[in-house]
Amino acid sequence: MVIARLLTPEEIGIFSVSASLIGIAHTLRDFGIANYLIQEKELTDDKIKSAFTITAIMAWTIASLLFITKDIIADFYNQPELTTIIQILSLNFVILPFSSIKMAILGVT
């Protein structure tokens, strides 16, 4: 409700498009690693480090792809504002690997 009062209908549409793209990217980024860590019976440091490495590679690759293609996406939707929003939201993928492994170990998905 608050966002609806602060943003115009066009701005809500732009945010919805970028949130959808980021949501799809998050699904690809997870790659089942959190489920693996939750279900693993003998969780060793090596397995945790391997999971972190795979998560970091996936997340940073997706962040790079989003950052590189932000102009193409904005041109496709004919909305230049998408460039800035995707640029900011892609930074989330840089930070995410540091918390996602710990959350999976705690059993929170």
Rank of each mutant, 00 (worst) to 15 (best):
I38Y: 04
Q39C: 06
Q39Y: 05
Q39K: 14
E40C: 08
E40N: 07
E40V: 13
K41E: 09
K41D: 07
E42V: 10
E42I: 10
E42H: 12
E42L: 11
E42D: 11
E42K: 14
L43E: 02
L43G: 01
L43T: 05
L43D: 01
T44P: 00
T44S: 13
D45R: 09
D45W: 07
D45A: 07
D45F: 07
D46M: 04
D46L: 07
D46A: 08
D46I: 07
K47A: 11
K47C: 03
K47L: 10
I48Y: 01
I48D: 00
K49S: 06
K49C: 02
K49E: 05
S50H: 05
S50I: 05
S50C: 00
S50K: 11
A51H: 02
A51I: 02
A51W: 01
A51Y: 01
A51F: 01
A51Q: 00
F52R: 08
F52H: 08
F52G: 03
F52W: 09
F52I: 03
F52Y: 15
T53G: 03
T53A: 10
T53S: 10
T53E: 05
I54W: 07
I54F: 09
I54G: 01
I54C: 04
I54A: 05
I54T: 09
T55A: 15
T55N: 13
T55W: 08
A56N: 08
A56W: 11
A56D: 02
A56L: 15
I57E: 04
I57T: 08
I57W: 05
M58C: 12
M58I: 12
A59R: 06
A59N: 13
A59K: 09
A59S: 15
A59P: 00
W60I: 08
W60E: 02
W60V: 03
W60S: 01
W60T: 04
T61I: 14
T61K: 09
T61V: 13
T61E: 08
T61R: 10
T61Q: 08
I62C: 04
I62A: 07
A63H: 00
A63M: 07
A63C: 03
A63N: 00
A63F: 01
S64R: 07
S64P: 01
S64N: 09
S64D: 04
L65D: 06
L65W: 02
L65T: 10
L65K: 02
L65E: 02
L66C: 11
L66G: 10
L66K: 06
L66E: 05
L66Q: 03
L66M: 14
L66S: 08
L66I: 14
T69C: 12
K70N: 15
K70F: 15
K70C: 15
D71V: 14
D71E: 15
D71R: 15
D71A: 14
I72Y: 14
I72C: 03
I72V: 14
I72H: 13
I72W: 15
I72K: 13
I73F: 14
I73D: 02
I73E: 04
A74Y: 04
A74N: 02
A74G: 03
D75F: 09
D75I: 09
D75G: 10
D75R: 14
F76C: 05
F76S: 06
F76W: 14
Y77D: 02
Y77M: 07
Y77F: 15
Y77G: 04
N78L: 12
N78M: 12
Q79N: 06
Q79R: 11
Q79Y: 11
